[in-house]
Amino acid sequence: MKTRACDNPFSNERVDDLLFFEPEWLGVTWADLMGRLEELDYRGAVVGPHGSGKTTLLSALRTKLEAEGFSVQRFFLNEESRDLNEEDWRRLDTAGRAVILLDGAEQFSWMKWRKFLRMASPCRGLVITQHKVGKLPLWLTTQTSVEMLQEFVQRLDPGFVNRGVSLADLYQKSQGNVREALWLCYDIVAE
């Protein structure tokens, strides 16, 4: 039986729908998180390894901040795009009192980071993600676990357990990157 890509329970569409951030995974509540962010005057860093949910957390934070009446501007960096484009720099320049969310802050060179920091200084807040502590005070650390992977797999494909695949092995193989582990599940179903 061949599974069409769009019918694969681990397809990008389904995984994206599932991977919304729930503070309970980290043993905290939104009130705890927002309280801590307020203490930091809305300037802090989310720190965690690849695939630990930093980007997902920023998406959830954006929704939360906008619901509370904040204006939000979000920027993305990654290994393929290690600088903002001209339009993004302009957007930052005109961000006013928005809260700035920056994904992948570690990609910036020192010079670019200083420029970004300077331009973001009039803004109401700045929350970044990075792999290691530094740049901004620590707001939150994200981490994954085999139990988290088990929970996701159960939600996406309750029958997956009958395949006799060890999720602990997949978790280890993907070095704790839950999204990578879910791609491995995709491959298993596709075969």
């Binding site: 769009c6 990008n12 596709a190």
Partner: peptide
């Protein structure tokens, strides 16, 4: 409102 005609990809990797 708006009606959109579009296509998208679903599967492995980026959408």
């Amino acid at each position: 409102g708006e009606v959109r005609l579009f296509y998208y990809t679903s599967g492995k990797g980026d959408r």
